[in-house]
Amino acid sequence: MASIRAGGQATSVLLADDDARLRQLLELELGEEGYAVRSCGDGIGALMQIRQEPPDLLVLDWMLPDLSGVEVCQRLRSTGVQVPVLMLTGRDAVKDRVEALDAGADDYLVKPFSIEELLARLRALARRSNGAAGPTKEQSDLLELEDLQLNLASHEVSRGGVAVHLSHTEFQLLRCLMAEAGRVQSRQSLLEQVWGEDFVGDANVLDVYVRYLRRKLESPGQPTLIQTVRGVGFLVKAGAIKEPPQ
């Protein structure tokens, strides 16, 4: 079960939501599923609890009374905290989804939602965090393509010797691409490897994260690295020099 980590310990979840009734319901449901649940009703409290005892997963409401969920995400990512985040919100516009993902959320669930969907998304996040699709022991800790390096042991990425800071999901997607450098990987394969076989979100999330990686890895004047094969998927290989914006 995704609620049990390697070693037999329960997966810990921090739930941050100012709706006391929803918080109580989710605490009960997650507890029944075997998760070790803590909760709070505001953003500052979430940040304090994460500093004191980082959880394995964070379920974060967008509309909190002090800091918004987006602001909490931004603060976590800016300090290098890569706990997987599932954002809960009543907002369903594309621009809102993009804002949440840009802030560092790994997944996004619109209220009202079913408990079954919430649990499925948490299972997918837990598998990715536990490295269920990770490398085998025989694989090298260092993946390289041209001047791009990805260190599996330290979770560090650099291009041309300059460190590149990636979110947890960005790192997992780049790892999957670099593990099969020069080979096209289908969209479905990448979604299953990074988001899990029972992923129930919008498949366009893959395009969003490819765009994030390109923005961070491909500066003007450098060769492009992530190539699109229309109708099939993506691969990593050195491509044409990226032109500066006009």
Rank of each mutant, 00 (worst) to 15 (best):
E33I: 00
S68I: 05
Q149N: 07
H155I: 04
D18M: 05
L166Q: 10
A105M: 02
T224K: 12
V157D: 04
I226L: 14
P245D: 14
L213G: 09
Q188P: 01
R5Y: 01
Q52R: 14
E99D: 12
V184T: 15
V210Y: 01
V162F: 02
V13W: 01
L119H: 07
V70D: 10
L235T: 11
L76Q: 10
E146V: 11
A240K: 13
R187P: 02
L122D: 02
M87A: 10
E192K: 13
N204I: 00
L15H: 03
H165D: 11
T89P: 09
V70S: 02
I226C: 06
G69C: 07
D18Y: 00
V70I: 15
G90S: 14
A120K: 13
V164H: 05
G233H: 03
D96Q: 05
A120Q: 14
A132G: 14
G34H: 03
S114F: 00
D56L: 05
V194A: 04
M63T: 08
A10S: 15
S167C: 05
A133C: 08
N151P: 03
R214I: 09
A2H: 12
R211Y: 04
L122M: 15
I4C: 04
G104S: 09
V59G: 03
T169C: 09
A93T: 14
D141G: 12
E170G: 12
A2K: 11
A181I: 04
L173G: 08
E117A: 11
L145Y: 01
S129R: 15
R211Q: 12
V81Q: 13
V110A: 00
A181G: 07
M87H: 05
P54Y: 04
P55K: 04
A238H: 00
V98G: 03
Q185M: 14
Q172G: 03
G80T: 13
P245Y: 00
L22H: 01
Q172W: 05
G34Q: 08
S167V: 12
E192N: 14
F113D: 05
L118M: 14
G239K: 09
Q172T: 14
R211W: 02
D66Y: 03
I44V: 14
A132K: 11
V110Y: 00
V94H: 13
E170I: 12
L190V: 07
L30S: 04
V208D: 05
L206R: 09
N130K: 09
I4P: 06
H155V: 07
L88C: 09
T11C: 14
L88H: 06
T79Y: 01
Y209W: 13
R38I: 02
A126I: 11
Q172N: 11
V208W: 01
L22E: 12
